[in-house]
Design a protein around this nucleic acid. Structure first.
Lengths: 349, 349
DNA sequence: CTGAAAGCGCTAACAA
DNA sequence: TTGTTAGCGCTTTCAG
């Protein structure tokens, strides 16, 4: 462990006291521009890097941003690329700052609460980003009760900081695309109601239909858990009971199940049923037929969340309590409006 | 920031001095079993959690395990699930210890060296896991020159700690599977030679052929970069020049390109060409046809690497300088030996 | 084997 | 506006 330069060294070189150097480096407003410059220059010349442990100890804030995903590790890293892009965005936001990204997942969904509790009082985190797709939960209570700055990815029913997609718009976008291409019997395969994005996309689906003069029918709204097999079962059953020519699916994994079910019913996608899904994952890109989806820009969800969180930690809390990110339609083959193009999809960012 | 319990509190309750409490908790050999127990009990009763910053500052070791991936973020999180499972394994190994997992990627491949340099002397890491598929590089020099304990995922040509797959075996396994099913003209689509796993798999390919009495032919060994389009181009060209009935592909992304190329040449997989690939990713599972691959058990790569690294950090360095993990064949449809089964693949762990 | 004291590098409080 | 002085909570000498 070769002797590393401390703030004392910087102070000496700049001809000031250590505390002044500290203040200067931390942008405290009461230091003269002149001395600040001297200090900054000295720091650069010495290639000074503050000791993160010392900083943490004395200031009380850790230099890590946690990403807490209250779901089983397996689920987190299943086929959908959602979290990958999220992580990418956070990483990029954090990179270059004094913070680094620390991953915190739970063993299983039930494990989430004790895990979050321990994460929160481990004092290892300067701030926390949590994915949280429902309106309310004990997890949010925990978060509120803690003194760890945090931001929610989702749309919680609280006055906390959050970033989310505009899922009503997402639903509308997808449904409109189908309706605009002339499909009149468009069903919606949704996810569990507890997820705000599922109910929001339903709202969008409904309003798209109604704006186009189609009637919204409850028997065209189906539900399944977010796994392929569940989607398969539901669609296999419902698509026999109802004659449809279009299907909007709330997620990519469900879409795969849905297409398999339709296929097994002798219905071809897109020829017999046009399909649009959500989440622009590699899965949707490589699936045969490639799946038209709404890109949620997860990268930006993560990037903005991290940015905003860091502001919060540093006490620069702006007013905006929330950020809403729009989705973008990625047209591929499953929707039937682009049948020739095989690889025309915009590459994911 | 409610008053949190310090080691002093623990010491008081146990009726010893703070330093003794520290020693006891850290398993120093010179404390009586009796006092150690008193201290441990007191700590438990108080739910004592050492302040990570303080620990870091005084001991000099940070409580984070870094995962450094010297590749562009985009590439890291592309379709292949390799890194996902790796991360999962590391996370699980780290979870429950005093360490947490901190992600460090570089912007691009060229960015890797300066980035690693800065990561290494950021003093934020107690240890580092680095993915490193080549035998030698400046990155390894950097690592060796630093005082940060580290372990390499790959097979470096040095006396450093590492964990890797037995890629000769992997190549053998895949090739044998094809040969055993009667294919006699089996080619190998490899990756760039700089990657040890590519050349190792080639060795395995060759020895499998020769053990089965087939002659190894150089014109049956093809190379492409690890992207779909590159694989497509090579296979499109080579498969016209050479009549093959089997193809072993070094990676999942390349396999997708290869299948597309074969298809465009009017050759069906598996009917005209049987194919086996490596990396059991969601891509290979969902692709049509589903792709027979060798599972690399990335989870365990990560898990063992992290375990071993923590031992190293804590000075329990066992002797084993390396760990080698075998691969397992996952039979799906692309190899043609299981043509009926559509979804018989073992789910990825 | 245990305890007292010093110090890790930084920031926070207070004086100057 | 700056410098001095004290810790932050832990580990690490070094006496006892």
């Amino acid at each position: 462990m070769s002797k590393s330069i401390t703030i004392k060294d910087v102070a000496d070189r700049a001809g000031v006291a250590a505390s002044t150097a500290s203040d200067a480096l931390n942008g405290k407003s009461h230091v003269t521009e002149e001395t600040r410059l001297k200090v900054v220059r000295a720091a650069e010349e010495l290639d000074y890097k503050p000791h993160p442990g010392a900083k943490h100890l004395s200031s009380g804030v850790a230099q890590q941003i946690g990403l807490f995903i209250p779901a089983s590790r397996k689920h987190v890293f299943s086929s959908t690329g959602f979290f990958n892009k999220l992580i990418q965005g956070i990483h990029e936001a954090v990179d270059g700052t004094d913070y680094s990204l620390s991953l915190r997942m739970s063993e299983s969904e039930t494990d989430a609460e004790p895990k979050l509790r321990s994460v929160l009082d481990s004092r290892t985190l300067g701030g926390l980003i949590i994915t949280h797709p429902t309106e309310n939960s004990d997890l949010l209570d925990l978060l509120e009760g803690s003194d760890v700055p945090h931001i929610v990815l989702g749309r919680p029913k609280r006055r906390t900081l959050y970033v989310d997609n505009d899922n009503v718009e997402v639903g509308k976008l997808a449904t409109e695309h189908l309706v605009n291409h002339g499909y009149k019997r468009v069903a919606f395969l949704s996810g569990p109601d507890r997820f705000t994005y599922a109910t929001d996309r339903l709202k969008g689906y409904r309003s798209a239909l109604e704006e186009k003069g189609l009637t919204y029918r409850e028997d065209f709204v189906w539900n399944s858990e977010l796994v392929e097999s569940a989607a398969y079962d539901v669609v296999y059953k419902k698509a026999q009971e109802n004659q449809i020519d279009g299907l909007f699916v709330a997620g990519d994994v469900q879409a795969v199940g849905a297409i398999h079910a339709l296929r097994d019913l002798g219905k071809n996608v897109p020829d017999d049923v046009a399909l649009v899904s959500v989440v622009n994952s590699p899965l949707t890109e490589h699936f045969d037929p490639s799946i038209t989806t709404v890109d949620l820009h997860e990268y930006w969800l993560g990037n903005w969340a991290a940015d905003r969180l860091i502001q919060e930690i540093e006490g620069e809390g702006r007013d905006k309590p929330k950020v809403v990110i729009p989705g973008d339609l990625i047209v591929r083959r499953s929707c039937g409006c682009n049948p020739k193009d095989k690889a025309n999809s915009k590459r994911s960012s």
